[in-house]
Nucleic acid binder design. Structure first.
Lengths: 135, 135
DNA sequence: TAAATTTGTAACATATTTTATTACAGTATG
DNA sequence: CATACTGTAATAAAATATGTTACAAATTTA
């Protein structure tokens, strides 16, 4: 769910990195993304599951980073928000009686695996700090 | 339209490459992909626009490659079927009054551009012949 | 300790995108 | 001239993504 997950999560983390000592509310964050606060909280829930942020409930509550932005890479964000990059598959199972249909997905898999390795290598070199410093 | 475009088009071209002298019907191709023939014809329409295949109407008609599989790269297919690879954007326009919201998409663009360069470089090295020989 | 504010989450609604179907005109073949 | 194709438009259905409402639970602060 949420196909803008990576972008939204990166946006959230960029904001948090700008105020590393403050608890930012989902409503404040939602205001920057222009997104429903509930969806922000869903992404934060995912971030918490991955020990990237912590939240405080109640009045003056909110969310903040659990570790320095220099120790979070875009690859970490990617892993939390994306399965893999893929150029897609046909929706239905191809005909197993056709030599091409039988193995097309397998061969696409190999290709997409290669692509993902390249992307992962690239994203691993960029920290949240790097990304955030662009703003 | 059609998010499995790349996979479907690659499947079509792989089939055509296996029978470079025959006109294959959209129904035959659809049978291998397990896809509606109309959608196959739509993708073929795109391939024709790009001068990769030619079609013959009427009885015993169909589609065949216009050039050898060794002269078509996966990057060619990619260009015809994909805009760019992206890890997504938030759906709504971010808050322009927030320094992060104001420039998040621009900065994601840079990142996605880099990713696409890598993917393009990789796909350019693989011909349809290479891909087809895996089967 | 009560009011206010915030998270957490479920349930549901809407919007968007993708895929499928139907229909039929046009074209070539035999 | 019957048959088997392509080409394409219009529409329907299915899948996915996003948005909304509602409310319990937690925490702060007055």
């Amino acid at each position: 769910m949420i196909s803008g997950k990576f972008a939204i999560t990166t946006h959230i983390l960029t904001l948090l990195s700008k105020f590393p000592n403050d608890y930012l509310s989902s409503e404040y964050i939602a205001g920057s993304i222009n997104l429903n606060p509930v969806l922000v909280r869903k992404e934060i829930s995912n971030l918490k599951k991955n020990h990237i942020v912590e939240s405080k409930e109640g009045k003056n509550g909110g969310t903040r980073l659990l570790k320095p932005a220099s120790e979070i890479t875009l690859h970490d964000i990617f892993k939390m928000t994306f399965d893999t990059v893929s150029l897609g598959y046909a929706k239905n199972q191809p005909n197993p009686d056709c030599p091409v249909g039988k193995r097309i997905n397998e061969n696409l898999d190999f290709l997409y695996l290669d692509i993902n390795e390249k992307i992962n290598a690239q994203l691993s070199t960029i920290t949240l700090e790097d990304f955030s410093n662009q703003f």
